[in-house]
């Protein structure tokens, strides 16, 4: 197999890895906010559900979670899970990352001083105005370094879709390497993850820099 054929096969997997990455962020960032609110709820039941959710999702391997998400419909209801593979990958990643993002959001929200809420309250801001105009912008700045960490981990975690035999770049690299007894696919995959993360770090640094206008 020539290098160019190998690369073109692997590039399909790269696009899929980027797909997992982008869709996971798209869904888990907002879901994490909902979980964070649930976790901070005054309602004890909601709060404890969120607490257990976060604890389980952070306390068990993502690979195991992916298997559960994928195979549970079959074992529980004998459902046909034929066309469900990609959706299961995205669902599994989203549920897992939302738990991590929820805790980051919670820390960020709690680090905004009480005085900010009080100042807004006396000035007559509604609760939602206070949150979206006063609190959230400060939360975003506070949590950016922690979010960057998670996002970088996510780039590498996309390889765990291997567990569901989803043909992203790592799964393909392993298949090609085994079939061709060739080490090159692993090198290519490694370079892909590294370059991807250099880009992610660069973009996140730019965003952080943009927030530097205040302290």
């Amino acid at each position: 197999m020539s290098l160019s054929i190998m690369l073109s096969q692997l590039s399909v997997g790269m696009v899929r890895a980027v797909g997992i990455f982008a869709l996971t962020l798209l869904f888990s960032l907002p879901l994490g906010m909902l979980v964070a609110f649930a976790r901070m709820s005054k309602n004890g039941i909601i709060k404890n559900i969120a607490r257990v959710y976060i604890s389980v999702l952070r306390g068990t391997p993502l690979m195991l979670q992916l298997l559960v998400v994928y195979f549970a419909p079959f074992y529980l209801w004998h459902a046909n899970i034929g066309g469900y593979r990609f959706a299961a990958v995205i669902l599994g990643f989203t549920l897992n990352y939302a738990a991590y993002f929820a805790e980051i959001y919670r820390g960020g929200i709690q680090s905004v001083p009480q005085g900010q809420y009080e100042a807004a309250q006396v000035l007559g801001y509604s609760k939602s105005q206070t949150f979206f105009r006063i609190v959230l912008p400060q939360v975003v700045k506070n949590i950016l370094p922690a979010v960057t960490n998670e996002v970088i981990t996510l780039v590498k975690d996309t390889s765990l879709a291997f567990a569901l035999a989803y043909q992203e770049v790592f799964t393909l690299a392993k298949q090609i390497a085994a079939a061709q007894t060739n080490f090159i696919p692993f090198v290519v995959a490694g370079i892909f993850y590294y370059v991807f993360n250099v880009l992610v770090a660069f973009v996140m640094e730019r965003i952080e820099h943009k927030m530097d206008y205040y302290r």
């Binding site: 005085g115 900010q116 100042a119 205040y214």
Partner: peptide
């Protein structure tokens, strides 16, 4: 009807 000036200012930093 009222305004309040806080001990710690509580300006919006952003």
């Amino acid at each position: 009807n009222f305004g309040l000036v806080f001990q710690n200012f509580n300006l919006f930093p952003h």
